[in-house]
Design a binder for these strands. Sequence first.
DNA 1: CAACCGGTGTCATAAAAGTTACACACTTTA
DNA 2: TAAAGTGTGTAACTTTTATGACACCGGTTG
Lengths: 252, 252
Amino acid sequence: MTPVVFSVASCLSFPANRYGVFMTHNASILVVEDDPALSRLICYNLEKQGYDVRLAGDGHTALDQISRRIPDLVLLDWMLPSISGLEVCRQLREQPKTKSIPIIMLSARGQETDSVRGLEIGADDYLIKPFGMETLFARVKAMLRRLPPSGNVLKFDALVLDRVAHKVERNGRLLPLGPTEYRLLEFLMTHPGQVFSREELLEQAWERSSCVELRTVDVHIRRLRQTLNAGEEKDLIRTVRARGYALDMPQD
Amino acid sequence: MTPVVFSVASCLSFPANRYGVFMTHNASILVVEDDPALSRLICYNLEKQGYDVRLAGDGHTALDQISRRIPDLVLLDWMLPSISGLEVCRQLREQPKTKSIPIIMLSARGQETDSVRGLEIGADDYLIKPFGMETLFARVKAMLRRLPPSGNVLKFDALVLDRVAHKVERNGRLLPLGPTEYRLLEFLMTHPGQVFSREELLEQAWERSSCVELRTVDVHIRRLRQTLNAGEEKDLIRTVRARGYALDMPQD
DNA sequence: CAACCGGTGTCATAAAAGTTACACACTTTA
DNA sequence: TAAAGTGTGTAACTTTTATGACACCGGTTG
């Protein structure tokens, strides 16, 4: 299991763990589209561009996913089962947490009044189907370019650590961490999948000179786990007997 | 120092953009278009919408005008005498002062590769001629909505700070702030959500040369809180243990 | 000119938050 | 099953932050 080095334009190199989960700072895009053929085409191509792509097949699912984890950009089809794209857009613009998510609407409705309506209701761009993938990429890139300087953000699975805001979230849930737990997690997130001995963790997450018991690491790992997994979620910290700990995807 | 007292009533009629910053003036738009018929049509209609519209008939003039006064938005025709719109766009994106001006390209070139090229080079949107005025308005509005905070009035939640009047209010309640508290709040409001250490806050809200105890920041934060939250309102200042403070929405 | 007054910085102390050590239970390994 | 390695709860302890009191300073007022 050698670390795979994966490089994306304008991004640093990011190691992938053995489960193929890329730890990138790549923009996350939620594609909301009910036509499987089109959604597959879009997702496939966007993923090939290095984006972290999620898919929602209808309005409800979309709102649900967004409430759990806020994407950097939403591609939103107009015609959708359950809740229409227009309505999804309206609802997103209402809530403070979601109102500034960039939205590109996709629609077969090419009438001028349609695009105007979409933009009026809060969409940032409006693409008329059928559109070429190149056009989509260009629009997506142009939109992401204008994103407010995305603070130093580390991501691992649904774990997001924002170094500027000094906040950690898992699935949108804010995690109350103490300074040491924060440093510990920050270190682990910058080296995902790697196992560290207690000595190494003390070296990295504690003061250089501090002479602390090795066992202390256990306690902090435990507390980190407790906070991290509050909510019956899977344990992201792997214990390696006689070696140490690692931030890692659960086996099963 | 007189207590800061004022009313924002006069500002409230201005539209707020997505950053919560009120536009205290009408957005200025530079139209770069050599076809007199079209440019007149566009200018006339935009002015009727209340925008502060300027016109440039060719690339040189456009760059010249922009260097003299930076507009909020540029409508840029592709085909232009002297310097092409594409080149103007490229040059604008090169200089720090102009690189973040929103640009909507206008062009009769409807090929996919053209729009892609325009967007790649730095345009934020690309409209294919002929387009309806309604579409143009919608695109312009959508673009201006996303302008970063630059106004003289900062807003965060129900907190409003007017830099010109040098006054602050929350929920319509006037806040009597001292000079230091005002500077502190002003700085925090221009960087919402970000955590700053006491050193950074001293650097930003105090005189360069002043050598003041770090703990002094605590006291001023406390005074700021006291004034800000007089009225059983939620605390907008987040304490980050061992790091500093941030202006932030209460999470829970 | 002297008293007053709001704005500041500093200190001492209280309160809160986070860290460490330790005892012991539990689990895995040989 | 013994030995080694881990997990957990607790209590003492340390660090950091909140707060109230007070002295100083410059400007204004009577």
